[in-house]
């Protein structure tokens, strides 16, 4: 049997793409997380009265978003050569401090997250040391960026649980 042409394949597959039977399924049950998120929200609405901390959180979130936006614009306009370790570190430190301030009044999900953060900070220092001798090393810069990202992910993850994990 001959293979259908690409157009025939595309036409047939696109019609199948809209039928329930051919659709991919999530690999794990999602309803429980949705149900908990909805009920947690309903409970919070019932129990919460306006508090000044809520206003503070909103203000700090807006300030963080504005600052991050400005940094992103600044870096987007820079040439790649200008995106060196110093600028990357300054940008990261700003984001990290903003997140730490934003989450300062919120309990963390684990007790040892600061230990994990410290380990990542040690890795950051080791990479920075190596970069002092080879400032344009792309692999080292990439590693530094990954360690920075891991720190931000950690801070976010311990303060904002995914619904699946509630």
């Amino acid at each position: 049997m001959t293979k259908p042409t690409f157009d025939e394949f595309l036409s047939e597959e696109l019609s199948k793409a809209k039928q329930q039977d051919g659709l991919p399924k999530p690999q794990q049950p999602l309803w429980q997380g949705i149900d908990k998120a909805i009920n947690a929200h309903n409970d919070a609405v019932r129990n919460t009265t306006p508090k000044s901390t809520g206003v503070w959180r909103q203000v700090s979130a807006i300030a963080a978003a504005t600052c991050i936006g400005m940094c992103v614009m600044y870096f987007s306009m820079s040439t790649p050569e200008q995106n060196n370790m110093l600028q990357m570190s300054q940008y990261f430190e700003q984001q990290k401090q903003l997140m730490l301030v934003q989450y300062s009044s919120q309990p963390a999900l684990t007790n040892d997250w600061q230990v994990q953060l410290q380990e990542l900070e040690e890795a950051e220092q080791a990479i920075k040391l190596a970069l002092e001798n080879d400032a344009q090393n792309a692999a080292l810069l990439q590693m530094l960026a990954q360690v920075y990202q891991q720190q931000l992910d950690l801070i976010e993850r311990v303060h904002q649980p995914r619904w699946q994990e509630i």
């Binding site: 597959e13 199948k16 991919p24 399924k25 992103v72 870096f75 987007s76 790649p80 995106n83 990202q149």
Partner: peptide, 29 residues
């Protein structure tokens, strides 16, 4: 991630291993 925002590079698509993790997918997907 913030690096992607800063240097604005495009994510490449999923690799074969990632596709295999998604379970049964039709040919086009």
């Amino acid at each position: 991630n913030w690096l992607q925002k800063v240097v604005s590079f495009e994510n490449s698509g999923m690799d074969e291993a990632g596709i295999a993790l998604c379970g049964d997918l039709n040919g086009l997907d």
